[in-house]
Structures are given as structure tokens and as C-alpha cells.
Design a protein around this nucleic acid. Sequence first.
DNA 1: CCTTGAACCTCTAGTGGCTAGAGCACCTAT
DNA 2: ATAGGTGCTCTAGCCACTAGAGGTTCAAGG
Lengths: 139, 139
Amino acid sequence: MHFSIGELSKKTGVKVPTIRYYEQEGLIAPPIRTDGNQRRYQDRDRERLAFIRHSRDLGLTMEAIRDLLNLSAHPQAPCENVDRIAADQLEAVRERIARLQRLETELARIVRSCDGHHPIAECNVMAAFSDHGKCDGDH
Amino acid sequence: MHFSIGELSKKTGVKVPTIRYYEQEGLIAPPIRTDGNQRRYQDRDRERLAFIRHSRDLGLTMEAIRDLLNLSAHPQAPCENVDRIAADQLEAVRERIARLQRLETELARIVRSCDGHHPIAECNVMAAFSDHGKCDGDH
DNA sequence: CCTTGAACCTCTAGTGGCTAGAGCACCTAT
DNA sequence: ATAGGTGCTCTAGCCACTAGAGGTTCAAGG
């Protein structure tokens, strides 16, 4: 029924200090305590923490998660705001992918430009890092 | 010949506080000062800072940049270590892309699963955030 | 009942790579 | 001579934790 922070950690995969941090930040409610001041959790807490964990794994910021948790407190309200948070996150992920792909192209070109057998003074990789003019895009 | 930190900033696109931060971190040498204690830079400093800036734009960590700068102090040494830093960075970028693409797939599926016109209690997006079991991969 | 040691507690500081702000001094143009 | 734009140092803040110190409590075994 009631379990310790270590057990909650094992059940959810969230590290113990992180759980305490989430409590401090108001993402999870302060649980009840034993006479000796140790935290004791219930299934309710486990579900909420699992939600937070999974949302973090999906790349959501703590702010977005906070918004979702607030929204979930009004289960009758329409879910458009929920969906918008997810759509925004998808868009953000797509932008980061696009940016990284430009980087990858550039780095691949740089790596190909040298075989590792020159003195550094004549290394094309070194030259490429020095000089943006040798790049195609703007990254 | 000699120019102020503001001018160096304009020439390189690195913000003034960032230049001071790089100096503090030992990436660039402390420049000479005016009688009134203001920094005065030379072209040499501009080149080094441009190198740092471009390397940062290519996603290198400050540690990797520090390594490159140290290597460049031995221009006769073979460039294999330089090339390895670049190759490692390329590999890191590719891993981040792969991870983000898994995320994108998952998020796209989640976003598609709801049209925004349900009460939150029945929202598939909300359900997907709660429960990793509904996901394909492990992100 | 007592002891052991694993797990818990709070509090502070550190991570990376900057950025913002306070409260001053200086430098250049008029 | 003065105005205001630029410079200086120092401290704190950002995000989302993570690490460590120094102490307390809990559960299992004797």
C-alpha cells in the first residue's frame, strides 16, 4: 500500500534525488511521512510520476509537463490544449532534427576531407573548423 | 591594429560577455589592457575566436575545442587526433539524430491519435503520455 | 531486545555554456 | 567640459538534474 522513495524509484525508473527534486518543484505533491520523517508513497503517486517520467522521455520540458498536469486537473475540459502541447513538441523535435542534419552534412564533408596522415598545419579538418567560408550552409 | 572587445564581438559574432567567459575559461589568452584597464585585441585573437565560434556552431563541446587548440600548438604532429575529434563529433550528431527520429515517430503517432475535440479524461494524447506501454520503441 | 548496515533525511554545490543585471569606470566626440 | 556609449568586475540565474557531506531511521538477523 505505502512504499518508500527507493521503492517508488524502482517502480518508475526515476532516481531518488530526482523524485525529491520534482517534489521541491511542485510536480508531485509532498507525500505523507513516517514518524521518523521518511516519505511514504501510494499508487496515485506512482502513476503521476510515471506520467512525468514518460513525458520527459518524450522530450517535454518541465514547464510543458506542469501545464499538462494542470490541464489534467480539469478532465471535463476539451483536450485541444493538451494536443497543442504535443504538436508543439513534435514541431520542436522536427526543427532540432533538421538543424542536426545540416550539421551532419557539414561534418561528414569535413571528416571526408582528410585522411589523418598530414601534419596538423596542413590538415583540412583543422582548416574547416577555422573557416566558416569553407562551409556550404550556415548551420 | 588593436581593437576593443566590442569590435572583436562585431567581427566574430561572439557576444561580449561570452568573450570574457572564454578568457576566464582559458580558451583565449588574456589580451593586453589600456591604462584604463580595457581589453585590446589583435588579429591573432580574432582568428582564434573565429575558430572557437565556428567549432561551437558545429556543435563541438568546449572540451573538444580545448583539445583542438592544444593540438594546434604542435603543427608538426600528425593530424589523426584532430580527425578523430571530428569523427567523434559526427558520430555523436548521428546518434542524436537517430534518437530524435525515434522520438519524432512516437510523437507523430501520438499527435495523430486525437483530434482535439474530446474531454481531457478521454484524450488519447493524454493517455499516451501516461503510459509507455502504448509506445512502439523505448525512446 | 539489540545491533548492523542499507536506505533515508536535509542542505549545499556543481554540471555546460552561457546570459542578465548591478554598480561602477572609461573613452570619444562634440 | 560633458554626455552617453562602451567598458569593467562580480554575482546570480538558466535547465534538469547529480554528487557529496554529515547525520538519522528502518528492517532484518542474532
